[in-house]
C-alpha cells in the first residue's frame, strides 16, 4: 500500500473524507470491527440439546467449532422455553467447558491418604471385581424354610443412589443391569 493508501486509512483523514467531522462514527472503525460477525455464524455445526439443570426442559443449541463448544444458548424453537434460559441454563457452556471439571480417574485405596492415578480400564476391572465379590459374599437366595421358603435372588450388600440428570437410556441400563445382578437397593434423587 502506498503512502496515499495509508493516509486514506488514517481515521483522521477519513474524518474529513467521510464527512464524519466529529469522529464518532464510520471513520473510526477498525478493520477488526468491519470484520466482526457472531461466532455462532462460523460454527461448524449446531447441535440440538436440552438444558441439564432443572426439569423444565429448556431447549438449547450447542455451537461447535473445531470440535470445541463455542457457545450454548436457548433454542428459540422450543415451545417450552422459546429460547430463554435461566442463569444456570445460561451458564451451561461454562459448566461443560469448566477448567474445574475432572478428566482423569482418581483412586483412593483403603486407608489411603491421597488420591492416586488409575487407568480407566483398570478402574473398570476393579469395580467389576468388587461387584462380583460383594455380591457373592452377601447373596441371599431364599428366605424362610420348608413350605415357608420364598425366593429372594438378591444382594443387600450393594446400593446405588443416582442423580436425576442421567438420561432415560442410562437409567434403563442401570435398572436392567442391577436387577439382573440382584441389586435391589437402587435409588435416585427422586427419593430425596
Amino acid at each position: 500500500m502506498g503512502l496515499g493508501g495509508m493516509l486514506a486509512r488514517w481515521p483522521l483523514v477519513r474524518q474529513l473524507t467521510r464527512g464524519d467531522l466529529l469522529g464518532r462514527g464510520d471513520s473510526v472503525r477498525s478493520p477488526a470491527t468491519e470484520r466482526l460477525r457472531p461466532r455462532t455464524a462460523t460454527a461448524d455445526r449446531v447441535v440440538g440439546s436440552i438444558c441439564p439443570y432443572c426439569a423444565v426442559g429448556c431447549g438449547q443449541r450447542v455451537f461447535v467449532k473445531d470440535e470445541r463448544i463455542v457457545q450454548i444458548e436457548g433454542d428459540p424453537d422450543s415451545p417450552i422455553s422459546r429460547g430463554r434460559l435461566c442463569p444456570k441454563g445460561a451458564a451451561t457452556k461454562n459448566l461443560v467447558t469448566a477448567p474445574r471439571r475432572e478428566y482423569r480417574v482418581k483412586y483412593r485405596r483403603p486407608f489411603g491418604t491421597e488420591w492416586e492415578e488409575l487407568s480407566l480400564d483398570a478402574a473398570m476391572d476393579m469395580i467389576a471385581e468388587r461387584v462380583i465379590t460383594t455380591r457373592d459374599a452377601t447373596w441371599q437366595s431364599t428366605e424362610g424354610d420348608g413350605d415357608e421358603e420364598r425366593p429372594r435372588n438378591r444382594t443387600l450388600g450393594i446400593a446405588s443412589l443416582g442423580g436425576a440428570t442421567l438420561d432415560n437410556e442410562e437409567n434403563y441400563l442401570i435398572k436392567k443391569l442391577m436387577t439382573a445382578l440382584g441389586v435391589v437397593q437402587v435409588e435416585n434423587q427422586a427419593r430425596i
Binding site: V47, L120, A123, D167
Partner: peptide, 27 residues
C-alpha cells in the same frame, strides 16, 4: 476404597431427558 470416575456431560452424549411435564426430549 474410592473410585472417582469423571463423567461425560450432556453435550458429550446422546440421550433423552424426561422433563417435569412427562416430555421426553433428546439431546
Amino acid at each position: 476404597e474410592v473410585f472417582f470416575l469423571p463423567a461425560a456431560s450432556h453435550t458429550e452424549k446422546d440421550g433423552s431427558f424426561t422433563n417435569t411435564q412427562r416430555l421426553l426430549q433428546w439431546h
